[in-house]
Amino acid sequence: MAPAYMGMGPDFTAEEISLINKGWTFCKAAAIMPIGYGLLHGFFNFPDITRILSIVAAILLCIDKSYLSRVGIFMSAWYYLAIFACPPIYLYHREKLTGHGHALSLIYGALFAIGVLIIAVAIAKIS
């Protein structure tokens, strides 16, 4: 049973498939880690490390992009900007290129949008 991306390009070696799957694991961690921390931070009074988690999540997505380029799956250099500005865009394009479903990017995108709206409301109240 071959993964969906197997039919989308050249024949991949076992090592290349391993890189693609490792990258996908990094993508999932990059999306789930900040959300999980946010939920735990809400219930327990953890120190605020959101900036560090954002950087770690971006690094994980950059590693994934590097893995994809190593196996010949092209993603524009503009997606480095998407990793930092709007990770759901990167995730959506990554899912599209490798044949994964879009559930992760859609859920993460909705949560990302809610977070942006909450920040916008907080800024509006301060002004």
Rank of each mutant, 00 (worst) to 15 (best):
L19Q: 09
I20T: 00
I20K: 00
N21H: 06
N21D: 10
K22H: 14
G23W: 00
G23K: 04
W24K: 15
W24G: 15
A31G: 11
I32A: 15
M33D: 03
I35H: 03
I35S: 05
I35D: 06
G36V: 09
G36F: 09
Y37E: 03
Y37I: 01
G38Q: 00
G38W: 01
L39K: 04
L40P: 06
L40R: 02
H41I: 04
H41W: 13
G42P: 06
N45S: 11
N45P: 01
D48F: 12
I49S: 09
T50C: 03
T50S: 08
R51A: 08
S54K: 10
V56P: 02
A58E: 01
A58C: 05
I59R: 01
I59H: 00
L60G: 00
D64T: 12
D64A: 13
K65S: 12
K65I: 11
S66E: 08
S66A: 08
Y67V: 05
L68K: 02
S69F: 07
V71W: 03
G72Y: 07
G72S: 05
F74K: 14
F74S: 15
S76Q: 10
A77F: 07
A77T: 13
Y79D: 07
L81D: 05
A85G: 06
C86S: 10
C86E: 06
I89Q: 02
Y90K: 03
Y92Q: 09
R94S: 10
R94H: 14
E95S: 10
E95H: 07
K96W: 13
L97D: 08
T98Q: 11
T98I: 15
T98L: 12
G101M: 11
G101F: 11
H102C: 04
H102E: 10
L104G: 04
L104V: 11
S105M: 01
L106W: 11
I107F: 06
G109M: 02
A110P: 07
L111A: 12
L111C: 10
L111S: 10
F112R: 08
F112M: 05
F112W: 14
I114E: 08
V116E: 09
L117R: 01
I118R: 10
I118K: 08
I118V: 14
A120K: 01
